[in-house]
Structure formats: C-alpha cells, structure tokens
Write a protein that binds this DNA or RNA. Structure first.
Lengths: 180, 180
DNA sequence: CAAAAACATGTATATATTTACATATATAAA
DNA sequence: TTTATATATGTAAATATATACATGTTTTTG
C-alpha cells in the first residue's frame, strides 16, 4: 500500500454533502480542501468506479445541453456508514508536512550562501499570494459572523489562513535578519 | 511519476554533510528532517543503489565488530553538482499539507457533533507532545545563541516549533469555544 | 461567429510509497 | 548469561500518485 486511501474518504465526505460529478470532485481540490489534500482526475475517475462496485456510491445520468451526459454521484447508506466509521476512528498519526522548500533550506548551512535570499523572497511571495487567496475565499464563503453554517469548512479555512500568516511572518523574519 | 523524487535530493543533501549508511539515513527521518519528509528503509536501500549506479554517490565498507559489514556512503562531485542544481532551481509549487485530521474536521458540520470534542482533544494531546519533543530537540542541538552553526538545521526546527505552537493554540481555541 | 476556455470522462504508463517478508550481527539490560 | 533491543541490509508485493495520452461537448468571450 501507499497510504490508507484517504481519497476514498474524501470522496465519500464530499458526496455526503451533495451530489457531485467526477469533474466537480476534481475541482474541489482547487478550493479550501485542496489546502490539505490533492488528487488528479486520473485518480478520481477509477476510484469512483471502484467505490460504486463496492456499493458505497451510485450515480445517475444527467444531460448537459444536447448530447453531453454527466454522471452525478451520490453516497449510499453503506457509504455513509463507512464514512462515519472513518470519522469515528482515532487519528493517532501526524504525518510529515512535505515541503520542498523547507527541505532545500535544510541544506543551506550558512547565511552567506548566495542562494538563500532569492529562495526566501520567492517563497515569501508565494505564501503571501496564497494567503491573499485564502482570505478572499474566507470572505466569499463566510462573509459575516452568523454565516458559519458549516463549522468544518470554516475551521479548515481558518487553519490554513493562520498557517500561511505564520509562514510568511517566519520568512519575513529570516529575510530581515539575512539582509541586514 | 509520483512526485519529482525529492528523496533523491534529501539523500544527496545528507551525504553532503557527512558519510552515512542506509540505516543512518533511515534514522534521519526520526529527527528534525522527519518533520518535513519521511521514507522507509525499503525505499532508501534501492535508491542508494540507483544513485551509485548513476555515480552520484559511492560507498566504502566498514566493519562493525567481528563480522557485520556496513556500507558507508559518500557523495561524489557529480552528486554535489546535482544537489547544487536542485537547490538553485525555483520552488514554485506549494504542495497540499496532507493532514488526515483536518480532512475529517472538514466533514464535521456542526459544533454539536459528538465526535468533535474527542477529535480535538486527541489532536491537541498529539501536537502538544510533538511540540515538547521538538523543543527538546532544539535545546539539545542548539543549546545557546552562538551554537547556530548550521543555519538550515536551526531554521527548520524553529519552523516546526512555530507550526506546532500555532496548531495547538488553534485547537485549544476551538476546544474552548466548543466546550463552553 | 469563431475561438478560447470550461465542462466532462476516461485510459495508460511510470514512478513513489507503504507494508510485509526476510535475515543476520552487535550491544545493552535484566 | 540469556534476552531484548538496536544496528544493519536487503527484496517482494500492493497500492497510491503524477504525468501524459485521448476525446468530445458546452459555454463564454472577443
């Protein structure tokens, strides 16, 4: 195995919220949930088929325009059970936060290394942009205090924003020290 | 492919610091660098062989005790070039921070869900323990201000500590709000 | 109205990663 | 001194993931 098929549960979770096509699920990883997992459509479509074989989901066909048929998937009660079981299990593992930049930084031994400052400014710019994007998402999805209808969705966005805020501040701090 | 073989560069990076065995490299993922990548020995040994075939590393045999031979690997100048090239390249992708707990949280829609509080306290305990562990590592590896001989090593530990500090604070904040 | 972008669904191939299988020596602890 | 643990090195098999290949429709934009 290569990991305990989290994507399976993500798909079940997404379908427990509403009916979705494979395309919708693919796109879901472009927004908030994409901060904490990613998947390509080439992984999603075969998995949808497998989950349907296992009777955890079903689909109905829907016509778009004249010809184009899309498959609207929905979760079955068996699927809901499996999803709930996953949610109920302990989550005792904190997996490594895979971050290529941090890996590179690990091998920069001196503040005088000419690669350091460009690396830092590049990352600062990237994370600053991501932070802006996340804040936009937040104000779009949760415009006011009372709109926190979906707690989980709100919390993970909040988490991502805090993460990026701290990340950029950390980078800025190093930049200040290095370029002084 | 499934990612641009970062492990290759980690191995080159580690070997650029000192000669190591496959076992040493495996163990390296138990300490600081393990916060940002992980690998099993079953992945490391074959890759070492491949890197040696590509002449990026070599090894010498060393005897431990009476019989046990270990392979001490070291980086070649070709390996150093490849490593330096990797470090010099831009790192324009921020990959998703894969976190199973956060995924689960995404699918908890209400503060009244009985699963929520146990999940939060479990994670708080885990991240609190990790934070303590990281702080111990820090005071062991960098006991005083002047001991920051290896900037990269220091910075990524600092980063991990800040990350876990914020993570636990975030969890505590939710726990307070939910259990009120 | 033409062209570009978005919608929609797949398959094939290569590689990365995890878990399990397999074995042996050296050292520390009971 | 025996036993457990750490050191040490591999292979096999299964699964996950990424990139590329492949195709067609619908909607938006210039």
């Amino acid at each position: 195995m290569a990991q305990r098929n989290q994507l399976k549960y993500i798909i079940l979770g997404l379908l427990s919220e509403k009916k979705l096509t494979g395309y919708d699920i693919t796109k879901a990883f472009d927004s908030d949930i994409g901060e904490f997992w990613s998947a390509n459509h080439s992984q999603i479509y075969p998995l949808l088929k497998r989950l349907e074989d296992d009777a955890l989901i079903t689909h109905e066909l829907e016509l778009v325009g004249e010809k184009l048929e899309k498959k609207l998937y929905s979760i079955t009660s068996a699927g809901k059970t499996v999803l709930r079981e996953w949610l109920s299990e302990p989550t005792p593992e904190i997996s490594a936060t895979k971050d290529e930049f941090i890996l590179k930084l690990y091998f920069i031994h001196s503040a005088d290394d000419p690669l350091l400052l460009p690396m830092l400014t590049e990352q600062h710019q990237l994370h600053q942009a991501k932070l802006t994007h996340l804040k936009n998402q937040m104000s779009r999805k949760f415009p006011d205090e009372t709109s926190q209808n979906n707690l989980g969705h709100f919390l993970i966005l909040q988490h991502a924003i805090q993460r990026e805020t701290r990340y950029t501040a950390w980078l800025q701090d190093i930049i200040d020290k290095v370029s002084r």
